[in-house]
């Protein structure tokens, strides 16, 4: 695991040049280190266990277990605020059409405003390659055995691919409706994608994720005529765990609802720009 953030055990790495990656690391090292353009998260130092003297004492603490991640997330958030950057954390289960929807979105945005993409997956740079094919700059983070992105990984990705001021940064999290809910990345908004080929009860089965979302995109609505999916029930379930959540129905394939989603993006970006606090000096 990375000893800085305790993000995951072994092997998380970051790459934005897919010519060279996949290094094996058996040796212990106490921090990530750079290999060309890749970034590896290695094993921490073995702690020392010393049989103590016999005097026990009690230490009272109020240490937030996720405090370290919160500090990395806050640093990322400061960076976004300084640049008037709208950062979105896109979360969903695997196969919800997240990457397809993102590619369509990037194509529609075109040159209207600057964009950048951070792609999180356990392995492969396939998604970042798909994003780059749209012309958008993208960086891939492979979490190895890790099940989520964390604030530390995103901070390093920002060092490698700094988003332009006034841009929209899409962070596509690992496809997983459980663990990413707990890890703030410093995003301005969290967007949960739920496709109609899943169950209406997903918001109830994975309440933490839907409770923390600012926007839910119900994707693949072009398939509704062929399914018994009750979209009103799905939306009601999302509101049951998150009464204030906004919901948009979209299809990356047919383009339905994409205009509304782009309007949401423009409005959220305008707010990020208005809230910009440039750093001094």
């Amino acid at each position: 695991m990375c000893t800085v953030c305790g993000c995951s055990d072994g092997g998380a790495k970051l790459e934005h040049n897919h010519d060279h990656h996949h290094h094996d690391h058996d040796h212990a090292h106490d921090h990530h280190h750079h290999h060309g353009d890749d970034l590896h998260y290695g094993h921490g130092p073995a702690g020392t266990s010393v049989p103590g003297l016999s005097q026990t004492r009690l230490i009272q603490l109020e240490a937030d277990i996720l405090g370290k991640n919160a500090r990395y997330a806050a640093a990322n958030r400061d960076r976004f605020t300084a640049g008037g950057i709208l950062a979105l954390n896109l979360v969903s289960s695997p196969g919800s059409g997240k990457t397809t929807l993102l590619c369509r979105t990037l194509t529609e945005i075109g040159a209207e405003f600057p964009v950048a993409v951070i792609e999180g997956d356990q392995q492969t740079s396939a998604d970042a390659d798909r994003i780059r094919a749209t012309g958008a700059p993208a960086i891939q983070i492979n979490t190895g055995k890790g099940c989520h992105l964390d604030g530390h990984m995103v901070g390093h990705a920002l060092d490698h691919l700094p988003p332009a001021d006034g841009s929209v940064l899409f962070i596509e999290n690992v496809g997983n409706l459980v663990c990413p809910a707990a890890f703030d990345l410093g995003e301005g908004a969290r967007v949960a994608i739920l496709s109609v080929t899943e169950g209406e009860d997903k918001p109830l089965k994975y309440p933490d994720m839907f409770a923390s979302a600012d926007l839910v995109l119900v994707n693949k609505v072009d398939l509704l005529p062929y399914l018994s999916f009750d979209i009103d029930l799905a939306i009601a379930n999302a509101r049951r765990v998150n009464p204030r959540v906004r919901v948009l129905k979209v299809s990356a394939t047919s383009g339905e609802g994409i205009a509304a989603w782009l309007d949401w993006l423009r409005a959220a970006r305008a707010m990020a720009l208005a809230a910009r606090i440039p750093t001094e000096g």
């Binding site: 695991m1 000893t3 305790g6 993000c7 702690g47 707990a182």
Partner: peptide, 24 residues
């Protein structure tokens, strides 16, 4: 992610051990 949370706990304990001067 419970494992990642355990790793965070370990990190906090190691930091505390250094700060407060205990070994176990």
């Amino acid at each position: 992610h419970e494992m990642a949370i355990c790793e965070s706990i370990r990190q906090i304990l190691e930091d505390q051990a250094r700060e407060a001067g205990f070994t176990t």
